[in-house]
Write a protein that binds this DNA or RNA. Structure first.
Lengths: 197, 197
DNA sequence: GGCGAAGTGACAGTCACTGACAATAGGCGT
DNA sequence: ACGCCTATTGTCAGTGACTGTCACTTCGCC
């Protein structure tokens, strides 16, 4: 019964998250996910290329938002400025999605196979950022380096915000880019400690 | 027949690389690898946790070298200085291993599953660097950021050297860290182009 | 010359994932 | 209302990665 298509997909995602939380990722079979969603195992693989992908969705929209953010930066902006603006443009989205992201992260944290997939997802975003920078006129190799470094800072800020949501993601992002500057240009402290706040 | 144990392991690795090059990774079964190595499929999985790992080996030694490099840096060195020294300490190893690395990279480049595994391997090295920095007194979060940024620069340098081995890995590494500094502290060009040489 | 440990073969089984074909529901024009 | 077309799903059969178990062989050692 082809109810709506997107409906089955959503149920599959919910079922997957539920089961992964109940029994863990490894102990859950794709057949069980399909059964809880009220479809066949075959249908699961029509909606997701593999078992892991049931946990990752909406990445396309996120990538597009980041890309747009980079391209929308003022013409005089340096690569790192453009990246920072792009990250700021998705702050709200990330903060709003926290209730959805939080349980997902818990599952990912204790599943090596899922952590591995997160890395490729992040790499995909990094590539998109790199290409966006390149389209702004940044030399290809430099764009790659900038995208990777910026993404590292962004991931660092997000992780910090996840453990300590208090000051808001924006503050963590500012702090991360500030620390990044201190690290790379680090004139001062040979003791290699960052300034307090 | 337990000839030597390590012997079978080495033959399995060679067989795997050969077959991956001949038919591609996906089109090669673990049974075929085992057969060419003169053992059973079961033995393959006694030596490697999964099919991908047959291509990745000696990573432990590499990680130890990087860690030692960080810890051996002079006491006054900044985190980025320590990382650069660590990377320099493995330059020779990488350059010498090029004949072995080159065919492997060709297989990896055209196999998404292997590229994904590379990312987790790199993440493992980054974690090791982060912990080494942390043991030097660098605050944990900052150490993570520094390790990721440094690893990005290192990967960038290595990739560039791979395509253009001419000036040597050392030059590429110097250049990468220089570009990194320009990016983060980017005083000059808003046009975001890097200085020529 | 037996003896324990390490390495291996053989066998059976689970599970992720795929290809092919039939069946059904819903939208659309007539 | 009727048939048509398309998208979605069910069904079936199959491949291949990976695991558990047990028996066997080889090696080092006393």
């Amino acid at each position: 019964m082809p109810r709506s298509g997107a409906d089955a997909r959503r149920r599959l995602q919910e079922a997957a998250l539920e089961l992964f939380r109940e029994r863990g990722y490894e102990a859950t079979t794709t057949a069980e996910i399909a059964a809880r969603a009220g479809v066949t195992e075959r249908t699961f693989f029509r909606h997701f290329p593999d078992k892991r992908e049931a946990l990752f969705d909406g990445e396309d929209a996120f990538r597009a938002a980041l890309t747009d953010g980079v391209l929308a930066a003022p013409e005089g902006a340096t690569p790192m400025d453009a990246l920072l603006l792009a990250f700021r443009s998705v702050e709200r989205t990330i903060e709003n999605n926290r209730p959805i992201t939080e349980p997902r992260q818990a599952v990912i944290a204790q599943t090596p196979a899922l952590r591995e997939r997160v890395l490729t997802k992040t790499a995909g975003l990094t590539d998109a950022l790199s290409e966006a920078l390149s389209r702004r006129g940044v030399e290809r190799g430099l764009a790659t380096l900038a995208a990777q470094v910026g993404m590292a800072a962004f991931a660092y800020a997000t992780r910090a915000w996840f453990y300590e949501p208090e000051p808001g993601l924006d503050a963590h992002l500012t702090r991360a880019f500030s620390q990044l500057r201190d690290l790379s240009c680090g004139r001062g402290d040979p003791a290699s400690r960052a300034p307090g706040g």
